[in-house]
């Protein structure tokens, strides 16, 4: 648990960080909460020559509601998200996901930006940003750009971000007023990475048919996935047990989970089917209370 030698640079602004990145190129790594990077450095799996610390840039730490969206600075910590009354009220599934990450110590330091860029195939935020069609705002030497969540995750531990780009903001469009969401996670012990998880946001019309629906899952493959086929299966339909079972079946068939110590691929498929069914049921219950009469 002794990292290889590295140089430490503290960025006071995003511009600082961009300049450092330009100067050190591939030798450098951004340091956010350090909850993924530092353990890997201690195991000497990661050995950056230069660490650019961005986690104290105040401009990157905020949660606010603005023009129909919740905007989160990339350096907002898991604990802030978990405890934010704004998020609990407007996007409960995000607070639920944050609260399920690791333990208090990790949540006190880890950031949403770091977690998304880390792109752990079993991480918790991936399903949420996909369910809600979030936008990732990035800044680089060549300027700013916005990457939709659906294009963000490219492979296990890889994203569409260039090595000289910084993720600065996550924009979550506010779901419809009468919509409800839930995040459910299946884990071996509390705080472990997910075996499978599902984020489901949906609303019902006055007749009880599914109106708007967004679903993201983890545990279906190398990256978190937007369950497009399940979304279209449910959209416009009146909910029934058979339909929910069909949704579970659908995700199970398309999933290609990674086999690891948390379970075989065959097991994880079944687990994913079960967790999705439960998440849909729970979301339905919550949406039912909000549906227009």
């Amino acid at each position: 648990m002794y990292p290889a030698a590295f140089e430490y640079l503290k960025a006071r602004s995003v511009r600082d960080a961009i300049a450092f990145l330009k100067q050190h190129g591939d030798d450098a790594k951004l340091l956010a909460g350090g909850q993924s990077l530092v353990p890997m450095m201690k195991l000497r799996v990661a050995r950056p020559k230069v660490l650019i610390d961005i986690h104290r840039i105040a401009d990157l730490n905020y949660i606010r509601e603005e023009s129909g969206a919740i905007r989160l600075g990339a350096m907002t910590r898991h604990v802030q998200i978990e405890e934010s009354s704004l998020i609990r009220e407007k996007i409960p599934m995000l607070a639920e996901a944050a609260s399920k990450i690791a333990d208090t110590q990790v949540r006190n330091r880890g950031t949403i930006g770091g977690a998304l860029v880390q792109a752990d195939p079993c991480g918790d935020y991936g399903a949420v940003v996909l369910a809600l069609n979030a936008q990732m705002k990035c800044v680089g030497q060549r300027g700013d750009r916005v990457i939709p969540a659906t294009d963000f995750f490219t492979f296990a531990y890889s994203t569409a971000l260039e090595t000289d780009e910084i993720l600065t903001e996550i924009v979550m469009p506010l779901p419809d007023k009468c919509s409800a969401g839930v995040y459910l996670k299946l884990e071996k012990v509390a705080g472990d990475f997910a075996i499978a998880s599902a984020a489901v946001q949906l609303s019902l019309d006055s007749g009880g048919a599914c109106n708007e629906v967004g679903i993201g899952v983890t545990g279906a493959g190398m990256v978190p996935q937007k369950a497009l086929a399940v979304e279209s299966l449910l959209r416009g339909k009146t909910m029934s047990s058979a339909l929910i079972d069909q949704a579970g079946q659908l995700i199970q068939e398309s999933a290609e989970p990674i086999e690891d110590l948390r379970g075989s691929a065959a097991y994880k498929k079944k687990a994913l089917g079960a967790i999705l069914r439960r998440a849909i049921r729970e979301a339905l219950q919550r949406a039912d209370a909000r549906k227009p009469s």
Binding site: L43, A190, G191, D192, L261
Partner: peptide, 15 residues
């Protein structure tokens, strides 16, 4: 295969 607490899971107070 189980040489860290990521792979060798101990129960915590939550269990």
């Amino acid at each position: 295969l189980t040489s860290t607490f990521m792979d060798y899971r101990l129960p915590s107070v939550e269990e």
